[in-house]
Each structure stands twice: as C-alpha cells, then as structure tokens.
Amino acid sequence: MKRKITVRELTLLSLTVAVAMMLSFIESRIPVFVPVPGVKIGLANLAALFALYRLGFRDAALVSAVRVSLSALLFGSPVSFLYSLAGAAVSLILMALLKKASFFSPIGVSVAGGVAHNFAQIAVAALMFDTAALFSYLPVLAITGTLAGTVIGIAGGLLIRKVPTFSDNEKSQ
C-alpha cells in the first residue's frame, strides 16, 4: 500500500528521528550505577512511544530503525548495533500489539516495551555467548526495566497528549 507523505508528516518524522538521536546520545553519556549489563533508562524509547501513538506503527518502526543504525554508526559498535536492533524491534512490536489491544495506558505499554527490550538483549547475548547463565540477570533487569519504563511511560503519555497536532491529515491512531 503506497501512501503519499506530506511535507508536514515528513517534517514531524524527521524531527522525531532527530530527537531520538539526541536522546540516544544523552543516554550514552549517562553513567550506569547498577552493575548489570543492559540496565538503562531507555530515553530513546520516549521517541518510539511518541511515534507509535502519534504517527503509527510503520513510522515508529522507521524512526527506530534509522535511530538504531545512526547511533551504532556514531557512538556504537557492530555488537552494540545487534543488541540495540534486537531490543528496539522486540520492544516496538510488543508495544504496537499492546497499544492495539488498548488494555494499558501508554505507561503500561512503555513498561512492557522496556522490559521486553532488556529481555531481548539478554537473549541475543545468551545466543552470542552460547550460555543460559546470562538469564540470571533477568530478575534485576525486570525491576530496573519496569522502573525505567514507568518513568518513560509517564513522560511519553504527557508528550502524546500535549504535543500539538498541527496537521489536519495526520493519522491520529
């Protein structure tokens, strides 16, 4: 299905990618205090959440794909690219399904997405190291992922409501 993209949509899309990149960068500068690999705030998930609710799944996937590729190029490595890609993909798909089910508010959706992101990264690491021992990090990640997801979900919920809709043909759902 081909659709025409308006200049407004294109601009909003580009802005979202730019903000996502900035959040990724800020995230990479924040030291982590919990000594478990994978613990993070997931600031870039804020952009994914916003894109999912305001621009739709396809555009959200586009934003995440561009963000993950660019941040791996700029401040990552091929390995970090794999982790980010797995995390972002699994988390976005789960968030899209949960949003469709409209069972949770953006907060619950973001929490599920955050935890799914952590779990996907551990799964990739377990595959790469060929060991199940890494799964012992899951309990800690479930807790930190939930807390981070809650914060991002509250912020995201505000953004989704407050950022003005400045186009009459913007997809609202």
Binding site: F104, I107, V111, L138, P139, I143, G145, T146
Partner: peptide, 10 residues
C-alpha cells in the same frame, strides 16, 4: 503490571 513485574523480579 508494574507491581507484578517488580514482585516477580524481586
């Protein structure tokens, strides 16, 4: 959801 994830994790 948040409470159950925290409890299961702990």
């Amino acid at each position: 959801l948040i409470l159950s994830l925290l409890l299961i994790g702990a």
